[in-house]
Amino acid sequence: MSKKLPRAERRLQLLKIASSIVRNEGTDALTLGLLAERAGVSKPIAYDHFETRSGLMMALSKDAMDRQVSALAKALEDAPREPTRIARILATAYLECAITIGPEWHAIAAALRGDATMEATQRRTREEHATFYADAIQPVSELDASIVRRRCIALIGTMEALSDEVVAGRIGMEPAVDDLAALIVTWIMSAR
């Protein structure tokens, strides 16, 4: 058994190990029992942190999204308030985050489909993400806030699909950033 860690540190350790399991063995292999075994802790510890496999998958998804939002917020801190610059920062940060997290991000998202609780969590996460993007874009857009937000929801779907292609190596990072930034400027930041 591993040494006793503070709760927050143990949770981070478990999430890191769970992410590694998904990356190397797929989402079907991930169970709370396997996670406990790989972490060197008892099953009750894993269950105490996540309660169910669904809870673990939702925690992995939330962790990935939180890391992405944090990277975006940092990238936007000192950015000049001009549409092309904001668009490029959003595109680059999203795609870099997808590459950093790796293919398990998409595998986790796919595994979360089909369960009502998990879908509600994903919907909430997408809405929070759309709000974050809209807040970054609105100051440099001439569009009404409701239109910017609605288009940001659509943009997230586009970003997910494009990041999947980049992670799989079917599209290069630079062309993907260029295309995504152009889409943001043309579709979201310009007037109707």
Score class of each variant (00 low, 15 high):
residue 20 S to R: 13
residue 69 V to C: 02
residue 14 L to D: 07
residue 32 L to Y: 09
residue 45 I to W: 06
residue 22 V to R: 08
residue 45 I to D: 01
residue 22 V to G: 07
residue 107 A to R: 13
residue 99 I to P: 04
residue 38 R to F: 09
residue 73 A to D: 14
residue 55 G to H: 08
residue 44 P to Y: 03
residue 90 L to P: 04
residue 43 K to N: 08
residue 60 L to P: 03
residue 82 E to Y: 06
residue 14 L to C: 05
residue 37 E to K: 11
residue 49 H to S: 12
residue 50 F to E: 03
residue 57 M to P: 00
residue 70 S to K: 13
residue 114 G to S: 08
residue 112 L to C: 10
residue 64 A to F: 05
residue 106 H to V: 07
residue 41 V to A: 04
residue 78 D to P: 03
residue 48 D to T: 10
residue 103 P to T: 05
residue 28 D to W: 06
residue 77 E to F: 03
residue 93 A to D: 02
residue 75 A to C: 11
residue 18 A to P: 06
residue 66 D to I: 01
residue 39 A to P: 00
residue 43 K to P: 06
residue 112 L to Y: 02
residue 32 L to W: 09
residue 74 K to S: 13
residue 46 A to F: 03
residue 111 A to D: 12
residue 51 E to W: 07
residue 97 C to L: 05
residue 54 S to C: 06
residue 91 A to G: 01
residue 105 W to R: 10
residue 105 W to C: 02
residue 32 L to D: 10
residue 27 T to I: 10
residue 81 R to Y: 00
residue 80 P to C: 08
residue 64 A to N: 08
residue 19 S to P: 00
residue 98 A to H: 01
residue 68 Q to T: 10
residue 38 R to Q: 15
residue 21 I to C: 05
residue 105 W to L: 11
residue 87 A to Q: 04
residue 112 L to G: 00
residue 47 Y to F: 11
residue 22 V to L: 06
residue 62 K to Q: 14
residue 30 L to I: 01
residue 51 E to T: 14
residue 45 I to K: 02
residue 43 K to V: 12
residue 91 A to R: 01
residue 54 S to M: 10
residue 102 G to C: 11
residue 67 R to W: 08
residue 71 A to K: 02
residue 47 Y to A: 12
residue 111 A to M: 08
residue 30 L to Q: 03
residue 90 L to V: 15
residue 36 A to K: 05
residue 97 C to Q: 11
residue 17 I to Q: 02
residue 91 A to F: 02
residue 44 P to S: 07
residue 110 A to S: 12
residue 112 L to W: 03
residue 106 H to L: 14
residue 107 A to L: 14
residue 113 R to A: 10
residue 71 A to C: 01
residue 50 F to C: 01
residue 7 R to M: 10
residue 25 E to F: 06
residue 71 A to S: 09
residue 104 E to A: 01
residue 24 N to Q: 15
residue 31 T to R: 08
residue 21 I to T: 05
residue 46 A to S: 03
residue 58 M to Q: 13
residue 112 L to Q: 00
residue 66 D to E: 15
residue 22 V to I: 11
residue 17 I to E: 05
residue 60 L to H: 03
residue 97 C to T: 15
residue 67 R to M: 09
residue 45 I to H: 07
residue 49 H to M: 14
residue 32 L to H: 10
residue 79 A to L: 07
residue 103 P to G: 15
residue 111 A to K: 09
